[in-house]
Structure formats: C-alpha cells, structure tokens
Nucleic acid binder design. Structure first.
Length: 468
RNA sequence: GCCCCUGUCGUCUAGCUCGGUCUAGGACAUCGCCCUUUCAAGGCGGCAACACGGGUUCAAAUCCCGUCGGGGGCGCCA
C-alpha cells in the first residue's frame, strides 16, 4: 500500500513505521524549523481529495497551487485519497477526480495512497498517545486531551502569524467509535509519514491547523509549514455554487473551456504574475510561480474574465491542435461528422477560432456549414431581405456567381463588388443580405471565405432559396 | 454566541514590508472612436476604487485603534 520510495531523511520507529520529521528542536513552531534541524529537505506537498463527489473548482485550485509549488521547486507532488468515510466514498468519484486532474495538466509523483487501507496504523498511533497519557478512551473512541491555558502559534506563509488559545479547542477525537480515524488525526499521521514539508490548503482548514499542530507536538514531530489560501467565491460574493454557472471542472470542460484557460483563471484568483503575464500557460506559471506572492484576500470567480482568457488561449492554439476538441464538441452537439474531411474542418476553424469564447460556440456559429435547415435571424430578415430590391440583388448575385469559373474568395469578391457598383450600392448593401441568405446569420466570418467553404452549389441554392 | 481570516475601480489586482515618486497603475467587463463586409480580433480613448471613523506624523492607500462589511470554523464530515 505504501508504494513510495522512502522519504528523505526518514527513519523507522520501533513499530517499523517510517517517520521523516523527528523533532529535535524545542521550538516546534519555529518558522524555519527545517533550517534549525539542519536538514535540507526536498519540497513535498500533497493534494488530498475525498472521493465523495466530483472535482470542485476550489479543490482544483488547491491541487493546482500545490502542484505549481512542487514543480517550481522541483519537489514532489503526492496524492492521498481521504476515503475514511466508507459510506460516502466511491471509486467512481476518484476516477473522475483523477481524470480531471490529468485534464487540467496536473500530474503526480508515486501512486496515490489510500487512508482506508491504513486504519491499523492510525489505531496504533492513537494507542501510543493513550499509553503516554495524552489521550483517553471514551466508549469505543479514543480522544486527545487538549492542554488548556496555553496558545498554539504558527507562521502561516500566506497570512503570517496565527495564534489561538487552547481554551478554544475542545478535546479531539482521534479514533471514532466505529474504528475509523478522525480527519485531523489521519491527516497528521499521513503528512508526517509522507514527509510533507508544506501544506497549502483552503482557508476553511485554518482552524484545523492548531489542532493538528497539537498532534505533531504530542509525537514530538516538527510540523510542516502551513499556508491557507482564501476560498473562491461566486460572482455575488456568496459561496461558489451551481447557480453561478458551474462548480465542477467537468462542467467547464463540457462548456468548451480549454484546461489552460481554466487553470490560468484559477491561478489569477490566488496569485498575480505581473501585468505583462496575465495570460500564461501552465509551463510559464511553473517558471514564474512565487509562493510568497500569493494573495490573502478572497476572490470572486469571474466568468467574463474566464471567457476572455479562454478566447485568448484558443487564439494561440493552431487549428490542428483545436481539431480533435472541436470535433468532439460537434459530435456532442449532434453534428454528424461522417463525410466531413479534416481539411474542411481545419479551414473552418481557421475562419472561426478568432471569434470563439468557448469551443462550444463553434457548433452554433458554424451550423450553416453542416445543415440546410439552419435558423434564420428574424431581425436580420427584416433588415436585409424585406425589400423587393434586396431580393432582386440576391437574384442577380446568384447569376453572377454561377458564371464564375473559379469559386475562390478573390473572384467572389470581385463579382460582388462589381454587381454592387452596377446597382449603385455600397458593397455592404449586397454582402449583408447575402450572408443572411447563405447562413441565416447577421454575423460570422468574411462572406467570401464563407461562400468558398460552403461551395458554389450550396451558395447558389441558398441564394435562390430567398430569391427564386 | 465564541474563535479565526479578510476589506484599493463592477471584477481580478499593482502599490502597503522601507509613509512623500499615487492628481492611485494594469487587466476583464462597460462606453466611445478608428479599422472594416457583419461579428470578432487589433489600435486609441473615456467612465470607475484606497469601506467608515478616530489617531500618529510636516505628510497615510501605506503605521496604530475602533466600527461596519465579507468569508470560514466551532462534528465520532472531510
């Protein structure tokens, strides 16, 4: 179960359990406890998902920053599955979470470890405390005795010094009556054994930290450095929830967001890379990341900015890179792709990628290229196809285009402009009605390119459809 | 109720550590103009903030105190 190579400077205790941070210094909470110990440790962080649901944006952000720090420091990023709740945990959730992490571009070192397989260890450690008089039994449970009248202090690397009185901390459950370990206890046992050097987690854990530090003390271990990042809120300042437009990574993937864009936004919600670097790739972020610059103020998830970032990331991708993604969105959107060549799709992507906010937008924007029964914009109809002269112009345009030997944009444009001039119109006076006729839309790519991709036959048929 | 974190444009933020260079800078959104075949993209410009009240100081967004606001926690959930 414990597949890792042994942590740096680890040693085994009399029970054969590997411990990596045996305390020798008296100042357990000294900010540079590692320096005091005289040991240079590889940065080791972890992400500890609980497989009781999908990967929430907040969790994704926690994983992301831990990963960033590990990669920047050339340290290790471990995964620990907190599946002590046998009832609510499900492997399906875990698989989804791992899938989402990979999709975001986050990889981990070593196999994940599972808390559910380590119950004997937690019990053994709790019994040590029992034997040492630091814990007591209450029924089937084992509780930790919190010494009153003192303070627990630590230097949070995001918030600075935090101190709480033990009078405000109740005795803590170590092992529950059903034999499973409490969250805080299993967490400490595992973090110590894994040699975790830095714990970066959400602000919601800030009050757990003093309790955990008490456990480290009880085992005479030097605690890791802790940092708590503020939670992300919804646009209205309330807790991020479904009604804000999606809380799971999966939802954003399905909406057509690029992982790089989602990650970019999540990064911006906790760390500012400088005015010239707001749009960045994960790789760039790894290089620039500075944990000391992380923000300590809660930020609101801004869908508008995400959309803009997504558009920026899409524009930077080549059409070939976008192709498989676009294809899956087309398929998901019910567009049959049989008989559609990659060459055709590539050219269509060339034309439209600059206009996309999400990949999914492509499906709606380009529907006229895949079907003949596309919807026609009502406002546009009134504006461009209501007058008889519009219809006549379209009819004449069809005649001109039909005579074209080459159906390339340049030739189409020349024909359009010439006809417009002959009819005493501005080119736009012909272009807008024509676009509406062939696509049903008042917006889109350049008309001549659209026509070329659509092909002469369809263009003529559609023009004649509105101007028989 | 108690404990903890936090408060610069609508939003994300720079500045705060070492008070004066801040008539507070950038980005998203928004508005206007340019470009233009529409929509985008791009270029240019506008609007817009130091939560409030006291101090300290020649001088405070920057230091101190209080108030108010936002968030989190106080489980044999994780």
């Amino acid at each position: 179960m414990f597949h890792q190579s042994e942590p740096f400077l680890a040693r085994r205790d009399k029970n054969g359990v590997v411990w990596s941070q045996l305390a020798r210094a008296s100042s357990l909470t000294a900010p540079d406890s590692y320096a005091i110990l005289g040991t240079k440790k590889m940065v080791t962080v972890r992400f500890a998902p609980s497989p009781t649901g999908y990967l929430h944006l907040g969790s994704a952000r926690t994983a992301l920053f831990n990963w960033l720090y590990a990669r920047h420091m050339e340290g290790r990023f471990l995964l620990r599955v907190e599946d002590t709740d046998q009832v609510r945990s499900d492997v399906r959730f875990l698989e989804e979470i791992l899938y989402d992490l990979r999709w975001l571009g986050l990889d981990w070192d070593s196999e994940p470890i599972y808390q559910s397989r380590r119950f004997p260890l937690y019990r053994q450690k709790a019994e040590e405390l029992l034997a040492g008089g630091k814990a007591y039994r209450e029924g089937e449970a084992i509780l930790f005795r919190v010494e009153k009248g003192r303070a627990v202090e630590y230097d949070d690397f995001i918030h600075g010094r935090i101190a709480v009185r033990t009078d405000d901390i109740k005795d803590q459950v170590l092992i529950k009556s059903d034999g499973s370990p409490s969250y805080n206890f299993a967490c400490v046992i595992d973090d110590a054994e894994l040699g975790i050097t830095h714990i970066l987690r959400g602000d919601d854990h800030i009050s757990n930290t003093p309790k955990q530090i008490l456990f480290y003390e009880a085992f005479r271990l030097v605690p890791p450095r802790f940092g708590h990042m503020p939670l992300i809120l919804g646009p209205d300042g309330a807790k991020l929830s479904k009604r804000h437009g999606g809380v799971s990574v999966e939802e954003y993937r399905n909406e057509g967001y690029l992982p790089g864009a989602l990650v970019n936004h999540l990064i911006l919600l906790g760390w500012y890379p400088g005015e010239e670097h707001e749009v960045m790739t994960l790789e760039e972020a790894v290089g620039m990341f500075d944990i000391a610059q992380m923000g300590d103020v809660q930020a609101k998830f801004d869908l508008q900015k995400l959309r803009w970032l997504n558009a920026s990331h899409i524009m930077k991708r080549t059409s070939a890179e976008l192709l498989p993604l676009i294809k899956s969105h087309l398929t998901a959107g019910g567009v049959p792709l049989s008989g559609v060549s990659d060459e055709f799709l590539l050219r269509l992507i060339d034309l439209y990628k600059i206009r996309l906010k999400t990949l999914r937008d492509f499906v709606e924007m380009t529907d006229c290229f895949f079907r003949d029964d596309f919807a026609v914009d009502e406002e546009g109809k009134k504006k461009y196809l209501a007058k008889p002269e519009n219809i006549e112009n379209i009819r004449l345009l069809a005649v001109r285009l039909e005579a074209l030997a080459s159906f390339a944009p340049a030739e189409i444009e020349a024909a359009c402009r010439q006809l417009a001039e002959e009819r005493g119109l501005k080119a736009a006076g012909l272009i807008h009605p024509a676009r509406l006729a062939i696509s049903g839309k008042t917006s889109g790519a350049g008309l001549f390119e659209m026509m070329e991709l659509l092909g002469k036959e369809k263009v003529l048929r559609r023009l004649r459809g509105v101007a028989p």
